[in-house]
Simulated scan of single mutants.
Amino acid sequence: MVLADMCKVYRRAFTLGPISLTVVEGVTCLVGPNGAGKSTLFRLAAGVDRPTSGSVRLETDGGQGLGYLPQEPQLPGPATCEEFLHYVAWLQRVPRQRRFEAVELALDQVRLSDRRSSRIRELSGGMRRRLGIAHALVHDPALVLLDEPTVGLDPRQRIGLRQTIGQVGRNRIVLVATHLVEDVRGLADRVIVLNEGAVVYDGDVPGLERLAEPDAAGDTDLERAIAGLMGDSA
Rank of each mutant, 00 (worst) to 15 (best):
E59I: 05
T220W: 08
K8R: 14
E182I: 00
D215N: 10
V9D: 15
L66S: 13
D114S: 14
P206Q: 14
A212D: 13
K38R: 12
Q109L: 15
Y201Q: 01
V24N: 14
G17V: 03
H139N: 09
L146P: 09
R130E: 08
T15L: 03
I159V: 12
M6I: 00
P73V: 07
E209M: 12
I133Y: 03
D61Y: 01
R98M: 03
V31W: 09
A216V: 01
H135F: 01
L161M: 11
V184F: 12
L229Q: 02
L107M: 10
C7E: 15
V27F: 12
R119L: 11
F100S: 15
G186S: 14
D189K: 10
G231Y: 07
A216S: 08
L3Q: 04
R11I: 00
A102I: 02
R129C: 03
P73R: 14
R50F: 02
K38I: 03
V168Y: 02
S39P: 12
A234P: 00
D5Y: 00
I133T: 03
R43G: 00
S233P: 00
V174S: 11
S233G: 11
R129M: 04
A136R: 01
A45K: 02
F84R: 11
P149S: 09
L161V: 12
V88Q: 01
R156D: 10
V144G: 09
V151E: 07
R57L: 05
D189V: 07
D114E: 14
H135Y: 01
R130W: 01
G203V: 12
G126D: 13
D221E: 13
E83N: 05
V193E: 05
T150F: 03
R129P: 03
L146M: 13
V31Y: 10
Y87W: 08
G203D: 14
G203N: 15
A234M: 03
S55F: 03
A46W: 00
R128M: 02
L21Y: 07
A188V: 04
I120M: 11
V199I: 07
L211N: 06
G63N: 06
E148H: 10
Q163V: 04
L107I: 04
K38W: 08
Q109D: 14
L30T: 04
P214Q: 06
S20P: 12
R50A: 13
M1Y: 02
D202I: 02
P33D: 10
I133E: 05
V199W: 04
L105Q: 12
G126Y: 08
I165H: 09
E72M: 07
R43F: 00
D49R: 00
D5I: 00
